[in-house]
């Protein structure tokens, strides 16, 4: 062996490095394996169904490609259902935002120990089944329900809320409010207190500090809050069925009915239209949303 010593050393070092590298790759492969169950889940229950909707939406019973399922949206009943769904979802989102933002601000300011209590109260209803919660609202709002019983006991005029759009909005706001509060709260607590102090220090009063510093910095949270309220509100059919009765039909109800009647093609076609609206709203929102906040609560 007349290989010079330093060359030999270098060779050994290189071999060791290669060895380390293979070790590292092996490790990251192991970690990737862990995600396998989820990938199967995602493929089976999200990706494939999506393609099935796409297929059914663009074909008719004779398996011919057609756009008639999609153009069904221009049918006056469907159009009305879509517009009403958009309107109610929008109203609910705005109300959620108006309720959630001040609450998130209060949470940010209040003491940590009180915080977890308020958050607990917020989250507590979410531990109960979504259907149960909505049916409870039905019982409260019914003509002879809890609310009207109390009102007549106090000799006040009774209210007719059940089976109106108001009842649906109420149900949506009640169910989706936490999804607005949490992402906004999350961005607000991340704002460094000294950034706010700096604004005050530079002469801004409370309102100016809010308008120029806190609000702009909280936009990502607001955006994800809006997404997480608007999308489920737009697509819901459970809340409108339970609190809206049979008279008020949202696009979600139309699609549900079509699937129930076995019209998979029509249902899928209308779903695709709805999906376009959702993607459109997400695209508009994501323009403002650089880093996605609040996704961790899922």
């Amino acid at each position: 062996m007349n290989v010079p010593l330093n060359v030999k050393n270098r060779l050994q070092q290189k071999r060791k490095k290669d060895h380390d590298r293979t070790l590292k790759i092996g490790k990251s492969n192991n970690i990737k394996l862990l995600s396998f169950p989820y990938i199967i889940w995602m493929a089976g229950f999200i990706i494939i169904p999506l393609f099935m909707i796409l297929y059914y939406g663009l074909t008719n019973k004779n398996k011919h490609i057609t756009l008639e399922n999609i153009t069904l949206i221009s049918n006056p009943i469907n159009q009305k259902a879509l517009l009403l769904a958009l309107e109610l979802a929008l109203i609910s989102t705005v109300i959620c935002l108006l309720l959630a933002y001040p609450l998130a601000l209060i949470l940010r300011k209040s003491h940590k120990r009180n915080n977890s209590f308020i958050v607990l109260i917020m989250i507590l209803p979410m531990w109960m089944n979504f259907l149960l919660r909505t049916i409870a609202w039905q019982n409260i709002l019914e003509k002879t329900g809890v609310l009207n019983n109390i009102l007549s006991l106090l000799n006040l005029p009774t209210l007719n809320i059940i089976n109106t759009p108001t009842a649906i909005v109420l149900g949506m706001v009640y169910n989706f409010l936490p999804f607005m509060v949490l992402p906004i709260y999350n961005v607000l607590v991340k704002i460094d207190k000294d950034v706010i102090n700096a604004a005050r220090d530079l002469g801004a009063n409370g309102w100016q500090t809010f308008a120029k510093i806190i609000l702009p910095l909280s936009i990502p949270g607001v955006i994800s809050g809006i997404t997480m309220v608007f999308v489920p509100a737009l697509t819901t059919f459970v809340i409108s069925t339970i609190l809206g009765g049979s008279k008020i039909v949202l696009i979600g109800n139309v699609i549900e009915q079509q699937f129930r009647l076995g019209n998979w093609h029509t249902g899928s076609g209308l779903s695709l239209v709805l999906m376009v609206f959702i993607l459109l709203s997400m695209a508009i929102l994501s323009k403002y949303d650089k880093e996605s906040e609040g996704s961790h609560i899922w």
Partner: peptide, 27 residues
């Protein structure tokens, strides 16, 4: 603080990250 004639330089800079340097200085 906004009524006092003094200004502070904070430990972790506390710059407004949503504004340009010029906007920060002009605040």
């Amino acid at each position: 603080p906004n009524e006092r004639q003094l200004n502070t330089v904070f430990q972790k800079y506390a710059l407004f990250n949503h504004m340009t340097i010029a906007e920060n200085i002009a605040f």
